[in-house]
Simulated scan of single mutants.
Amino acid sequence: MEKFKSANDSRVSITELMLPSHSNFGGKVHGGHILNLMDQIAFACASKHSQRYCVTASVNRVDFLHPVEVGELLTLRASINYTGKTSMVVGVRVESQNITSGTKRHCNSSYFTMVAKDENGKSVPVPGLLLENEQGVRRFARSKQRKEEAFSRDTQFDSSQFKIEEHLDLLANENVKLDLR
């Protein structure tokens, strides 16, 4: 196994025609189908980088920016943005394309944390990421910051440390009624 690999070494893309069987009751491509494709390409990218079977540990925010129509081509691109000891952050970008007009739209982007596993299901080390340009450094730094913010957020709201009085003011203009007994 190589000690470091570039994002280009494991970059993956797929394009798939969206069929009526992928649609929801509103006639648009079901978000769950798109998430499934995103998870598959994140797995492929992480496995290619680590040369191991990988599992999804978390998904950081998925915002559906535009609906995807049946009959459009959906292209997903994935690359490694960050490497830890046993985990990788895979950036996934999704674009739809109208076949007749050629119009392309960015549908969503998301970040999947994938963990490399051995034959016994134990987490194993992954190659580091070779950063070759400013964009690579930006993506790595952004992923590291997102990881630190998630840790801070998780510990701030841990039930053993949560202090209700510190958060009651936040509820003042919300659609909520307090009935604390």
Rank of each mutant, 00 (worst) to 15 (best):
K163R: 15
Q97L: 06
G128H: 04
R153K: 14
V137C: 12
V115R: 00
A57I: 01
N81C: 08
A46F: 08
G26N: 13
T15L: 05
Q51F: 09
A7T: 04
N108S: 14
T83G: 09
G128N: 01
V124Q: 07
M18L: 07
E148H: 09
A44G: 01
T83R: 02
T86P: 02
Q97R: 12
R61L: 09
M38S: 03
M38Y: 05
V137F: 15
D63M: 00
N120D: 14
F140L: 09
L17H: 11
T56F: 01
F4Q: 14
L131D: 04
V92W: 07
D39W: 06
V124D: 00
E174S: 15
K163M: 14
K144M: 13
A44H: 06
G102T: 04
V29S: 00
V89K: 13
L37D: 00
R93E: 11
A172Y: 11
S96I: 05
V55Q: 02
A150E: 13
T100K: 12
T100G: 08
T83F: 05
R146A: 15
G32I: 00
P67V: 02
A46S: 05
V70M: 05
V29A: 01
L178A: 06
F151Y: 13
S10P: 04
N98H: 11
N81V: 06
Y82T: 06
A57L: 07
H22D: 14
A150R: 14
T86V: 07
I164A: 15
N81M: 02
E2W: 10
